[in-house]
Structure formats: C-alpha cells, structure tokens
Amino acid sequence: MDELEILKKDWKKNENAFDQVTEKEIYGMLHKRSSSIVKWILIISILEFLFLRLLDLSIFLDDEYSNRMKEHHIYDFEKFVTIFNFVVLLVFIYYFYRNLKAINSSSSVKKLMQDIINTRKIVKYYVWYNLVLVGITSAIVIYSQFMYDKNINHLYDKYQLFFILGGFFFVIIILLLFWLFYRLLYGILLRRLQKNYNELQKIDF
C-alpha cells in the first residue's frame, strides 16, 4: 500500500479526536490583542527609563552642575533620589514584564480580564509614583535655589511670599507637563485596554 494511503487511513480515523474549543475560548483568543498593548507598555517604559535615566546620570557627570548642586546642598539628596528612583523603576518594569507574561499565557476570559485590571492598576501606580517624585524633587530643587543661589537669595529674603507662590506655580506647571506626557504615552494604551476589557465583559455574561 502507498505510504500516503496508510497515513490517510489514520488521518481519517483521528479526524474528530481533537479537544474541541468552546465559543467562549474563541472570543478570548480574539481579544488577545490586549497582549500587544501590554507589550507596548513595557517597550515604552523601557525607552522612557533609558532616556530619562541617562539624563539623570548626565547631570552627575557634568562637573559644573555637580558643583552647583553641592553649593545648593542638594547633591546628596539628588544622588539618593536618583539611585532610589532607579531601583523603583526597575521594579515597575519587572512588573510590566510579568503582566505581559501573564496575559500571554492566560487561557480563560476571566483570567484575561483579571490580568487587564492588574496591568491598568500597575500603570496607574507607575504614573502616580513618577508624578509624586517629580513634584517633591522639583519643589526641593527650587527651594534650595531660593535659599542658596547667590543671585536670588537676597531677593528671596525681601519678597518671600512672592517667591513661594511663584515656586508653587512652577511646580504645578512642571507636574502638569509630566501629567500630559504620561497621559499621551500611557493614556491611549490604557483606554484601549479598557475597551478590550469592556468587550470581554460582554462575553463573560
């Protein structure tokens, strides 16, 4: 007998031996695009990390700027914040990576929904963490400028209220810029995740 005929006989025999996939599972597969959104979150966070942390490091490599920080008594503070931030961001990136793995391997709609919620939560923490840190560090940097900058500190003594208000608005503006930056980078992705989540919800009930 022809080899292929033997094979065909076996092929036909096992034609219906496959574990059948349910409609719900198919819907789940169609909504796997969540994983590509989460992949982008990971990629963007890594790029952001590389770019912004290089900027951080460049500040310390610049002698003039380092000396100015020492004059303003914030050198040690900046060093501490930079290292602290470095570690925390790496932890966040690790969590983004874990989310991606989890979504890739999730097999049920329920699990996928849970993973989407987790991802959104972590991205939100990430953005909040960044905003809080930016707020605190910029406030301290501005304050030290007022206190120790030779060109400014005598004016600061005279117009204290004016300077404090000015500094306050400056920090708000910086925060607003960062907030816009994150909204643009992650907001779109989070909305897509939410849309996907809503569609999954329709399937599940």
Binding site: W11, E15, F18, Q20, V21, E23, I26
Partner: peptide
C-alpha cells in the same frame, strides 16, 4: 461589529477541526 464577531465565532467553532488538523 459584534454581530459579525458572533457569526465568525460560530463558524469557526463549527469548522475548528480544519485548524486542529
């Protein structure tokens, strides 16, 4: 959109053995 999705899922489920094979 969800109508065509439902149609797709139904047809795919019925013909899934093609993919399995």
């Amino acid at each position: 959109k969800s109508e065509s999705e439902a149609l797709f899922v139904k047809q795919l489920k019925e013909n899934q053995n093609i993919i399995h094979k």
